[in-house]
Design a protein around this nucleic acid. Structure first.
Lengths: 124, 124
DNA sequence: CTAAATGCAAACTATTTGCAACGAT
DNA sequence: ATCGTTGCAAATAGTTTGCATTTAG
């Protein structure tokens, strides 16, 4: 594993956020001033392919990168806020209908976040 | 609802596929030769906002547009093939953990499609 | 007559690619 | 000396925007 790949993996695993490639790039640049975006993108792709991180494709927003540890996502329909949530593992349930062979699944739950629920005129 | 919006909605509702904006544009152009891509994009966005269609964000692929009728998606990890599947409605289960206020959810299940399972060297 | 919808071109954002230079075996 | 990794610049893909024109009520 390359130098940057390691650093990027560490960044993602330690972060509580769901960072975009841009954010990762900026973060990494703090300690590695010479790094460029293309390198970050390339490493992110490599890490995804090796199954070490998870890519999160969202609407109207650049991809985000996440730890591999199984968990689901909660997304506010109003402001787009993204948070983690851990529902029970559905793999068994799904395999019941599909047979063996499920690798993984991606569950996004849309709701109205507390902040947006309070306000009459929420963010956005 | 505008002329194109209606036609696009109909296209999406009648199609068995998950069309990209480009595909919808090409399809629509068959009967409406003057239409341009920007108009299709604008209408697709409008339809999404009104909740009449569903946008499907996938990795390494343009967004796809889908009927609103509740159903889940099955995605092949190898060739990316996308198909519909209908698992039981999880809303109750999710609300049990989250409280009321869930609008909807998006469940993508990753597996190896029959074609790719057969081949030693599958598509891609 | 007015407002909304459309066509067109240009802009923009996110991401990828080609290639030369670098660095560690 | 070689091979993978990086920096850099340019290219690409998908999508959005601004504005003039057309269309429908």
């Amino acid at each position: 594993m390359s130098r940057y790949a390691e650093l990027i993996l560490e960044l993602i695993n330690q972060s509580q956020e769901h960072m975009t490639a841009e954010q990762i790039f900026l973060e990494l640049k703090k300690t590695e001033p010479r790094v460029v975006q293309a390198t970050v993108y390339n490493n992110l792709n490599a890490l995804c392919q090796e199954g070490l991180i998870r890519r999160l494709s969202l609407e109207n927003s650049p991809d985000r990168y996440d730890k591999i540890l199984r968990h689901d996502h909660l997304i506010c329909r109003k402001c787009g806020a993204l948070s983690d949530v851990h529902f029970g593992d559905l793999t068994r349930q799904l395999e019941g209908q599909l047979g063996e062979g499920i690798f993984s699944y991606d569950l996004k739950v849309f709701y109205l976040c507390p902040k947006c629920r309070e306000k009459k005129n929420p963010v956005n």
